[in-house]
Structure formats: C-alpha cells, structure tokens
C-alpha cells in the first residue's frame, strides 16, 4: 500500500496521462511504470480513462450536413478495406490490346466499276488489274498491322517498365521511412530505459525546468540518477537557430558551471545524459541558455528554461 503522498502523485500522473496532458517523456516514464505492473496505477488510469471518454458528451450535439453521409458512402466505395501497400498490377493500368480485327479497314479501291458487257480477256485483264491493284494495298496493310502491333508492344513494355520503376521507388521510399522510424524507436527505447534506470535509483529526484519569458513553450525534466551520479535530461525545445546551441548549466549559490551542450532533433526534442562533477555541491538550480556554437564559459543569453532544485 502506498502512502498518501505517493497515492496523490500517482493519481495526478494517471489523471494527466488519461487526458493526454503529460509531456512526452513524462508519459513514457509513466508507461514504464505501468509496464512494471503497478496494480494501483493501472486501476487509477482505467478509471480516469473512462472519465475522459465520457467528457465527449459535454459538447452539444450538432446535426452534420446531410450531404456528408453521401460523401462518406462514396469514399467507402472508393477506399475499400484493402492494405494501402497493394498496388495495381501493370496489366490493370492499361487497356487490353486491340485485336487485329479492330485494325482500321483498308481504303476501298478507287477504280471505276467495270461495264457488265466486257470480253473474257477484258475480264481477265480486269481481274489481273484488280489483283495488281490489291497487292500493294495488302502489302501496305501488312506493314501497317506490323507497325501498329510493334508500337503497341513497345508501349506496353515501356508502360510496364514505368510502373515497375514507380513501384521500386515507392518501396525504396518506404524502406527509408521504416529505417528512420526504427532509428527513432531505438532512440525512444534507449531514452525510456535510462529514465527508468534513473527513477529506480535510491532517492531518485526529478527536477522540472519550465520555459521562461523568452521561450515559454519550452520545458525540460532532469531525472537524477543518484546511484550513477548522473542527470538524465529530456527536453522539448525549439530547434536552435543557425550557429547556436543550447547549453545546460549547474547553478550553485556561487557560480554557474557548464553541464554540457544540448542538441535537439528537428522536432525540438532532446535527450542527453550528463555526469555530475564530484566536486560540485549545493546545487540550487538548473538552467538552459542559447549560446554560440561550441558553448560558452559563462551564460551569455537569457535563460530559456529554469528549475529550482529543492535542498
């Protein structure tokens, strides 16, 4: 059974988590706690999740426009429940080839009609003449058929090659995306592991750093691993401007001592582990400033995030 303070802290975390109001690293730390199988935490979260689900009812019902159902129905017809990765095969991308019967007919003969009272010679000559007239046309037609068929074959191969190239490009792009996602997931796992390790250390401490006037939306949390004498720092900052870098400071009553540089990802999230110097005592606070590339010996800019360390 937890004491009252622990229960209150647990309820606060569960309530904020259910509302989606914890910062990213706090949410991950709480998820780790749930994975450790804390029954009370799981029960509190389930109850608060139900409250959040019910909150949707507080909004007044509003009739959506009638046409939306038609749009939706049309959308469902167009987007059946198929995996997004299914691509059409090449033969589905083009019309089937025309049969040879559909090749345009040859032009009719332009010779004048023969009179009906002609001699057999004349008739024979006429037949010979007709044959002589037909042969060039037949040859021309054969060449035309061959040309049309050849063009169609060439176009078919070209189209199939284009589709295959397109599919290969899509697969390559997807592979790159998955690789990047895997790297990000690995980073998250590492971060969660280090935060959990810090929280499990005896007398573990958590220091919240809040955004100051110059950057009110920034924030950071220091998980103080007392066993390893390290600070595990998770921060959500704005991307640093060109030529600048964030710097973390140990603040004592006498001095501000550089704790190291913080380089956020393009998303603004940063994670770092800092070893505390053995000779540092009576830490009063921690602060983050924006410094020139390479860092400074002493802070040269206003404080971006700041958190006091209870004695």
């Amino acid at each position: 059974m937890k004491d009252d303070n622990s229960t209150i802290a647990l309820q606060e975390l569960a309530a904020l988590y259910a509302l989606g109001a914890l910062c990213q690293h706090e949410a991950r730390a709480f998820e780790n706690h749930l994975h450790d199988g804390d029954g009370q935490a799981i029960a509190e979260l389930e109850a608060f999740t139900q409250v959040v689900e019910a909150l949707g009812y507080a909004a007044s019902s509003v009739e959506p426009p009638a046409y939306l159902l038609d749009v939706l129905t049309a959308r469902l017809h167009k987007e059946p429940q198929l995996p997004a990765s299914v691509l059409p095969f090449p033969h589905q991308l083009q019309a089937p080839p025309q049969s040879l019967h559909e090749v345009p007919h040859f032009p009719p003969s332009t010779a004048a009609p023969m009179p009906t009272n002609v001699t057999s010679f004349a008739a024979a000559k006429s037949k010979s003449s007709a044959a002589n007239t037909f042969i060039p046309w037949a040859l021309a037609a054969s060449f035309l058929i061959a040309a049309v068929f050849g063009f169609w074959q060439w176009k078919k191969v070209k189209d199939e090659a284009a589709v295959l190239n397109s599919q290969m490009a899509a697969v390559k792009k997807e592979t790159e995306r998955l690789s990047q996602q895997l790297n990000e997931e690995n980073d998250k796992v590492f971060e969660q592991t280090r935060i959990s390790q810090a929280l499990r250390s005896p007398n573990a401490r958590v220091v919240d750093l809040r955004g100051q006037e110059i950057a009110p939306t920034t924030q950071a949390t220091i998980f103080w691993d007392t066993q390893a004498n390290q600070w595990v720092v998770a921060a959500d900052l704005q991307p640093a401007p060109e030529g600048k870098v964030y710097q973390l400071w140990f603040v004592t009553a006498e001095a501000k001592i550089s704790a190291g540089l913080i380089k956020p990802k393009p998303s603004g999230h940063a994670f770092t582990v800092i070893s505390l110097p053995k000779d540092i005592n009576h830490l009063a606070a921690a602060a983050i400033t924006l410094e020139p590339e390479g860092g400074s010996a002493q802070p040269t800019s206003p404080i971006y995030t700041f958190g006091k360390i209870a004695g």
Partner: peptide
Amino acid sequence: GLSHTEIATKLGHPLGTVKTRTRLAMIKMR
C-alpha cells in the same frame, strides 16, 4: 489538448496547482 506545463504557463499558475486541480476534478467526475 494542452499539456499541464502549457496550462500552467497559460494560466500563470504553479505547475503543482494545475496538477492538484486536475486530480481533484477527475476524482470528482469519476
């Protein structure tokens, strides 16, 4: 969809106050 730190900043209240109010409100509604 604000986080508790964003709420504290927006309202100008200490973070602890925001956490306490959230917890009590959620327990009451539960």
